[in-house]
Amino acid sequence: MTAPENRKYTKTHEWVLVDGTTAVLGITDVAQNELGDITYLELPEAGESVTSGEPFGVVESVKAASDVYSPIDGEVIERNDEAVDAPELINQSPYEKAWLVKVKLNDPSQVDALLSSSDYDTFAAEQMG
C-alpha cells in the first residue's frame, strides 16, 4: 500500500495529518505489517505532552514491543480509545480507524521537515529491501 499523499511521515514509520494547529498521529501500513498481529496498545491521555523525537506510546505484537515516536511537540487533546480496546484495528486500518492521538501543535512549522508520502515510500522500500 502506498502512503496517503495528504500527510507527512517519519523514518520511524509514523504518519502525521495536519489540520491548522492540530495534528493526528498514527503508524504506517509498513509499520503494522512489519510488527505483525498487534495485541496491545498504550497511549497518553488528553493533557499529556508529546515531544519531537521521544516515544509517546507502545505498540506490541505477539513478537515484540515497539515504541511509537512523536515527530512534533504538542499536547494530546484526544486519544483513540477504540484502538486501545481493539489494537487489531491497527493491522486492519492503520491510516483511518486506527489513528492514535490528536495533538495541539506547539509549532506547526515542525511538520515541514518531515517526509512527503513519495519520499517515505522510497525510504520504506529501500529499508525493507
Partner: peptide, 20 residues
C-alpha cells in the same frame, strides 16, 4: 513466509500471521 534467523538457521517465523 517471513524468514528469520533462529539457532543459525533461516526459518519461517510466520506465514499468514501468528494469531491465525
Amino acid at each position: 513466509a517471513r524468514m528469520v534467523e533462529f539457532a543459525g538457521w533461516e526459518m519461517p517465523v510466520q506465514y499468514s500471521g501468528i494469531l491465525a
